[in-house]
Write a protein that binds this DNA or RNA. Sequence first.
DNA 1: GTGGTCTAGACCACG
DNA 2: GTGGTCTAGACCACA
Lengths: 132, 132, 132, 132
Amino acid sequence: MTHGVPVLRIDLGSDRPAYEQIVGGLRALLVAGEFASGDRLPPVRQLAIDLGVHHNTVAESYRVLEQEGWLDLSRGRGAIVRRRPERKASPAAKQEFSRRLEELAAKAIADGLPRASVAEQLKALAGRLTET
Amino acid sequence: MTHGVPVLRIDLGSDRPAYEQIVGGLRALLVAGEFASGDRLPPVRQLAIDLGVHHNTVAESYRVLEQEGWLDLSRGRGAIVRRRPERKASPAAKQEFSRRLEELAAKAIADGLPRASVAEQLKALAGRLTET
Amino acid sequence: MTHGVPVLRIDLGSDRPAYEQIVGGLRALLVAGEFASGDRLPPVRQLAIDLGVHHNTVAESYRVLEQEGWLDLSRGRGAIVRRRPERKASPAAKQEFSRRLEELAAKAIADGLPRASVAEQLKALAGRLTET
Amino acid sequence: MTHGVPVLRIDLGSDRPAYEQIVGGLRALLVAGEFASGDRLPPVRQLAIDLGVHHNTVAESYRVLEQEGWLDLSRGRGAIVRRRPERKASPAAKQEFSRRLEELAAKAIADGLPRASVAEQLKALAGRLTET
DNA sequence: GTGGTCTAGACCACG
DNA sequence: GTGGTCTAGACCACA
């Protein structure tokens, strides 16, 4: 992948909007610490080609991440990763996460994944989150 | 709650579509085994009132669950829970789950939830899934 | 078939409402002269059993035909075929028929019937209509 | 009519659903070969204005035709006419056509059209179908 | 009284 | 500016 972006893959042809997948994927990489403050994300047009989408779609995704405080966008300089101030979780955030987590697991099980396999992935991710 | 539906709550005012929340919530209950085969879900209009949404929104949710094989719908007789045949996970399902799980956790962390808290919930759910 | 009703078949499981098929089918028989004035149509409940539908559905169909002037309904005496006064075609009726005829033929062709076969059926029906 | 769509008229105020009339009318034009593969149908909003219906109603019609294989729909690019693979008539299709044809003719006669006039239209259409 | 259909209005994803 | 989604209101088919 050009410009050294760690693996970012989206599934065109999924019902899920492309921009949402891009935002979600980049946010996961950012949270995982794959980018240092000051790094430059690939130019909109380059990433668009790599992912097979219209450049407006990538631009929209960057704008969302800027809104969330992850990026500085400015014409000509590209998309620069910022040090992002810590936020306090909103009171509802924990419950929201809990609900969606349960629904996500239920969906996976309904789709035929064995409960054991789902549980395993949950524990694996928990491990990765705490070891750092 | 009328008609004995186990706790189902949705968050109007979330930008997440109401029908999607209803589907997700009901599916979680179904996977958890909260309904026996042959049970009747509440009439669309009743559940609509309980949740504060339009009855078409509930109807759409029921139709999705019928499509997935959870329900039998018929005029006059209502929405009956079916015994659902086991499915084999599609090859993409595991990867899809994995991706969305990571994105969900990242979103929670980005929203300010401490990593430890996220990890804890993941492990808790894993526990619940394996104990049964 | 009980009560001597000439062939009337409907296709449950079609998208087309049962009552509409019943009305259409009976009207076709009436136009074809299969019933004499004064004949009695089968009782609602009997025909309902024969066709596999709820008796209310048949009752509704009879009511439509009464409305159109084909039947006299009265409690206890059943559904009596009437001599129906000639009507003048409304100005739009011819165009309406023409349009629906073209659409019907187009649908059949789109469904894979050979044009020749469609044309043949059209001519056959035309023949039956004029010979009488 | 804008965008060069050959005559398409619907009868609002008929109890026949608008979208069904639109589907039927467009399908008749498609079967008649009025559009070449690659042609663009008018944008949903434009046709909606021309016909005096809501744009969703037209969109639904286009979706049905896409389902049947007549159109390719895509955001931003519009509705493109496809080369449609030949289909084999399902065994039921001929009988279905026959039944509906009889009912349609009966309805016309019941509405007051003279039998001769109905027969004439049938023969005329049969002629048009075979001459090509 | 049950689920289902049709049309509508506001908004969204994307080229 | 393109098609698509979500929710809504009025009405329908049917047990």
